[in-house]
Design a protein around this nucleic acid. Structure first.
Lengths: 196, 196, 196, 196
DNA sequence: TATGAATGAGTGTTCATTCAT
DNA sequence: TATGAATGAACACTCATTCAT
């Protein structure tokens, strides 16, 4: 199993995709291996030729979002730019990630506690790194006078909250593009609601 | 059973509290009636002298948050005040609700999809009413020139996100009081990050 | 409990009647002590102030039919008369018993196997005595030339079957009185379907 | 599962047979899935690879008797013959059905009320059709002068009772063949007990 | 690789019965 | 006598997982 041939990779990727859709819709515990097997077109037991456990499926889903998210943050921080520009890029990329991988993102935010303790730690560590990255941008903005002196931690939580909750309501099929949404979010964060 | 005597009410309230704590920690599906029974100090079957089903427990938890939240919104809208003042009050009350009933709020946001279809509808309707109330405040602020012309729907989602995600990270035991947090959130929303 | 005062007797009789109705409608195993308690107007546990067990209720019901049925047979056999006359009396009394105690008869025929082994033996013994009585009438009829020589055992089973199945379909409220039904049954048994 | 291959059919048929035997002996509600599993030689849960529910087992048993019984009636009515001849054929086939499928017949008569409401309706409808067929034979016999004018409904019930109660006492292993029993029953019905 | 069949632990829930009050 | 609360065993059924074929 998982022998690395591209056919195998595709097959496995399909199983993971199917699982992501079901986990997003019914929850991890509300989805049985039989459900997944049925959606893939094989018997539940046959899935074990490709994966080791149900939790592996969850882990693959969670991990794919986690890795992309960390990659995005790393890239943004590596590129020079104003704090506002970096903030805009963080928001945009995050919303784009959620919109392009909606089911996986839903599973990531909603179901990661069903992972093993060890893997939960990895998720927490990754989220911590991400939040630290966000805070570094805020801090720099304040230090350079681009932002007013605000509580970095709380501001970070506010931004994180706005982004992490987006999976609940934002659907990319609607009239609002990710770019437009990101612009509005950043405008709100930078300029606030007060009239100019 | 459930006859409204105060002893019975207390007993039932205790069961609901215990369930809320377990549901918050392990998830609704990850918590068995045996778990709840053990935490209460009785056999699982004995719980059914006080409740009709596991789902009833979830419903009681979800409902208590839902009712308080709607009540808060109704009261805020009924009191006169500036849009900013009302927004501040909404944010404050919501964060206070989450901080004073942390487990119940966690269960509310995380587990309501495990309710019956009918009860899910009631939750959705309640959330819609709440969001509608929030938007009415934003709209008024814009109409009266207190806020700049912003997209009401998106702004509403941004604020809702900030509040709904708070259960994940805000713990009232820390150095930050709810009042302080609310102030910072409202400052961010109104003034933004730009220097004055 | 069961102290023999007439109030106590009445109360117990009421419980037994209620149980008979429920057992007849839902079956012995399909009826819970809670069902009975609810129908009586007390909590399930309170019933145990009057009875020792659920099986006791079944036994009282079964026994009442059994005793009456044996009593009927004894009385019929004690009275002089032709075999046809006695047969008519047996049929009439049996149908009357079923029609006057419909629920109890239903329970008797349908649920006696839920009794303890010992009590089941008593039922079997009673039924055997009853069938033996019936056969003695048939035998006498044959011996005295009133009936043609027929297989006594099979004829007895045929008659028993006709009577024992009546609880399934005969309802005394209809247009047919017990006396009419008994007459028709005896006519059929004696004269058969052939034209005179 | 239940895919119609003959191995699967055999396996399922075995489970149904085992269930019929246990249901006949202990009653439907008195038989647990563990009982059935034990008798089959697997764990209770394993049975669900072959059936959907305990009620399905009951339905299969009841249905098999019901279908055969209706088939018998249809065939008898389709063949020309005297009323007496058809009556004899009905009695014979019915007793043969009970004797060849004793446990299933016992379950059919005793446990059909444990089926779902819908399936109970189907049983009632089937029994109605069967009784209607029987009555049509009696009616024809009367119309053609072969039988005396008797109450068709009551006569039908009498005959049905004789047949439906047979499962209680008739066991084919005894000295009496089904054919002999059928002859004696028809003789009794047609000629009665009176001497010629 | 897939299947059919099984496992064994676990699920929410019901039940007859007990007993202190 | 009745109640409220509990018991402990049982119930039908589901689940992730295993494995011979």
């Amino acid at each position: 199993m998982a022998d690395g041939t591209s056919a195998e990779v595709d097959y496995l990727a399909n199983i993971v995709d199917v699982a992501a859709e079901l986990f997003a819709r019914q929850g991890y515990r509300g989805t049985s291996m039989r459900d997944i097997g049925r959606a893939v077109g094989v018997h539940a037991g046959s899935l074990y030729a490709h994966i080791e456990s149900k939790e592996e499926l969850l882990h693959r889903i969670v991990n794919s979002i986690m890795l992309r998210s960390e990659q995005d943050m790393t890239e943004v921080l590596a590129k020079p730019g104003t704090a506002t520009g970096q903030l805009r890029e963080i928001v945009l990329r995050d919303l784009r990630l959620v919109s392009e991988h909606r089911e996986q993102a839903t599973v990531f935010f909603h179901e990661w506690r069903n992972l093993s303790a060890e893997r939960q730690q990895a998720v927490i560590a990754s989220r911590d790194r991400w939040e630290h990255g966000l805070r570094s941008v805020i801090s720099r903005g304040i230090a350079e006078g681009e932002f007013r002196p605000a509580d970095v931690r709380i501001t970070g939580f506010a931004i994180t909250s706005m982004l992490n909750w987006a999976y609940v309501w934002y659907s990319p099929g609607g009239p609002l593009t990710v770019e437009q949404l990101a612009d509005q979010y950043v405008d709100l964060l930078v300029a606030g609601l007060q009239p100019r």
